[in-house]
Nucleic acid binder design. Structure first.
Lengths: 255, 255
DNA sequence: AGGATGTGTTGACTCAGATCAATAAAGCGT
DNA sequence: ACGCTTTATTGATCTGAGTCAACACATCCT
């Protein structure tokens, strides 16, 4: 490890996860970026301040789960997106869009980057540029897939999709069928556009069918991944009888 | 206009819309990009071929509306996203994500770009880079907002939001309260996660309240923008009585 | 023009999930 | 360990929008 490596970067997943932005920076670039940046920790239910959003419109999630929340006039709340380790957030173009509030769903470590130095690194370092670009396009497709989940899926199907989403986004231990759910039931409900009661009933349903096992509130174990996948793909036939479907959307069997 | 300007670019909105990617390219860059690219027209209900997706994973919408569709096993269909003039689509990172099918909702003109030349332009031209980055982050926020619409809003609220979304994305003539709806009712329903019947009933409802006027299937006129905005923001109180809501989400009054 | 096909609208009925209310179980500070 | 607060679960009821079916328009084709 280089002697130049900034102390706070050495503990940050943006640096030590090989597929994250900071991992691709040279020591000099990292020092330059770090000099204008600052790590901050946000406790659960607290928001990223307006001030941070103005002064540091570019940030990266080092750890924890950050949510983007929308509130309707009569109090209905929605978690429109969840940001996790490695995600880059660039608010510079978000003024026109209704952004909503950035609220931590558990303890979040955020690196507030300097937009100027960030742009410079993007300009000069092709690998870093590619990773940043890949992360943003990934976020776009994730958001689109989430929208698709919300649009037509039933409660049980949405929950099944969520379990896969969380498993795929988390750092994955091969062969481990345990999935860690890093957020509360009510946050999960708000993310999936349903009520906590319904989430509870759906977990119970999946457990009752022997598809998952709910160890405690934050850990479940997938017992029958193919069945869970079928549910998440909207197969409502009682016992695996498959319908004809155009080939473009036959989804990969995984796990 | 430069003598070097490629013929097909001169008719393309990616070039003549000042805020689009190609408008920022130098003549040399444009010629280089154009040499490896090709415009293609896709008729309604036709898909972007697998071959195009493989050979030209980077494309830009010159005109028309392109949809990204998901299909569930039992036949339920969802339009997860709609891409319009000026949007850049980069499929290179989409292999892991379930992309779905790219289907034209009306006649679409697509410019299939060379990834290599596109990357080179991104690397060398800061303005073009910024615009491409801005378009992608914009798409992300749009998708997130769409997800928020789908999560908790009622049918009428979703339709109201859609009217504003379409108006804001379209090229806007100031003072013109007509909104052109470029897609069919059933496509609109699939985008909003509802049934065509419900869309029809909601249009009727809004018209009955004097909030919009439906000229024909593809043109509506907004008669009472504040009321429409209130509905899209989830105000269900009968006559404008406002509830207390945290300041971060009080939305701008527009129009 | 006429028939055929695709698209949008209207009405009657049903159901998945929201809502309300009550209880149980976790967290958390002292 | 205690009490207190927050969060999750369970049960009973209600409703918005889905579903089904019939009809009204458009648009297209020959």
């Amino acid at each position: 490890m280089s002697p130049h490596l900034p102390e706070q970067c050495s503990h940050c997943s943006m640096y030590f996860d090989a597929e994250n932005f900071c991992a691709k920076l040279s020591d000099d670039e990292l020092v330059a970026l770090n000099a204008q940046s600052s790590l901050v920790t946000i406790k659960r239910d607290e928001a990223v301040t307006e001030e941070t959003q103005k002064l540091h419109p570019v940030m990266a999630i080092s750890s924890g789960v950050l949510s983007l929340q929308h509130l309707l006039h009569d109090g209905r709340k929605t978690i429109a997106a969840i940001l996790m380790r490695g995600d880059i957030l660039d608010l510079r173009n978000s003024t026109r869009n209704q952004l909503g509030a950035l609220i931590a769903l558990n303890s979040v470590t955020l690196c507030r980057l300097s937009p100027v130095v960030f742009d410079a690194a993007i300009a000069e370092n092709p690998q870093a540029r590619m990773l940043a670009w890949a992360n943003i396009t990934d976020q776009t497709f994730r958001a689109i897939n989430h929208a698709a989940d919300l649009a037509k899926k039933q409660a049980l199907e949405k929950l099944a999709s969520f379990i896969f989403e969380i498993r795929n986004r988390d750092v994955r231990v091969p062969g481990n069928d345990h999935v860690h759910i890093p957020i509360r039931r009510r946050d999960l409900a708000e993310y999936l556009g349903m009520q906590p009661e319904t989430v509870s009933r759906c977990f119970k349903d999946l457990a009752g069918r022997g598809i998952i096992h709910v160890s405690d509130l934050s850990v479940i174990r997938i017992l029958n991944a193919p069945a869970l996948r079928r549910i998440s793909n909207g197969d409502r036939s009682p016992k695996g009888g498959r319908l004809d479907v155009p080939s473009f959307n036959v989804l990969v069997a995984d796990a």
